[in-house]
Each structure stands twice: as C-alpha cells, then as structure tokens.
C-alpha cells in the first residue's frame, strides 16, 4: 500500500455540496522529487484525503528542454469556479501565467524581486572584476 493512495481522477463521487471547495495542489512524487496533482476538494479536508476531482497536474522539476510542465482541465476548472471553488494562491498564479486568470500580484512581486537580485549580482560581479583589474595593474 503506497503511503498516499492514488484516487481516480474523476473523483470519489462523494461531494459535500455545502462545504467550501478549493482548487489546490496535492503533493505526490516522492522524497526530493515533488510532483503535484491539481485537485478540487473540500477546504476543510487534509491534503491526503480523497479529492472531489482531479483537474490537472504540475511537474515542478525542470525537464531537459528547460520547461516546467503544467496540465489543466480547463473545462472542469471553469465548472468548479462557477460552483464557487476558490483556487489557492499558487494555483491562481499558475492560472495567471497560463493566461486564464489575470496575472497574480504575487507573480509580479516575484519577478520584480528576481530582477532586483539579478541587477545586484551583476553590479557585484562588475565591481569585483574592476577591483581585480586594479589589483593586477598596481602589482
């Protein structure tokens, strides 16, 4: 018996119509090798509980072509959004990148921080280069 049983992608058939639904990641894969299912499930349920339905998958590990692979079942996502399901921040970010939602503010923040970091590192590298040049000239 695996630590986390695989449930059928169409769901378990048990739906609590009154409970709040979320569209979220569920971590599959194994130690040091994450792989996520994107599922819709009741908000109060834990990650390891059987989901209402699987809506896609996300492979966060970069592959040989330098890609992260995301799969969405947009038809069902539309359905569950219509039924009032709320995507979590990380799923909303991915949906934003896919062009399905508006870009999530957090995506802009991340991009901006990365750019700042890159600029800082580039400036540091430049300084270090100049210093080493000066040192070689004086000696």
């Amino acid at each position: 018996m695996p630590r986390m049983p695989l449930h059928p992608a169409v769901g378990t058939g048990k739906i609590n119509p009154f409970a709040k639904k979320v569209i979220r990641f569920v971590r599959y894969g194994c130690t040091n090798r994450p792989f996520y299912h994107i599922v819709v499930m009741e908000a109060y349920k834990g990650q390891r509980q059987p989901p209402t339905e699987q809506l896609g998958s996300y492979d966060s590990r970069v592959n040989v072509h330098n890609e992260r692979l995301v799969a969405f079942n947009f038809e069902r996502i539309r359905y569950w959004l219509g039924r009032g399901a709320q995507p979590t921040k990380s799923v909303a970010e991915l949906l934003g990148l896919a062009g399905f939602f508006p870009i999530h503010p957090r995506s802009y923040m991340t991009a901006w921080r990365h750019r700042r970091l890159n600029d800082k590192q580039a400036a540091q590298a430049k300084d270090a280069e100049e210093e080493s040049k000066e040192a070689s000239q004086t000696s």
Partner: peptide, 10 residues
Amino acid sequence: CNYVFTDITY
C-alpha cells in the same frame, strides 16, 4: 525556465 500549459480537457 519556460512554463508549458496544456489543456487536457476531455
């Protein structure tokens, strides 16, 4: 890296 989104609608 690139993010690749696939629509797996049935």
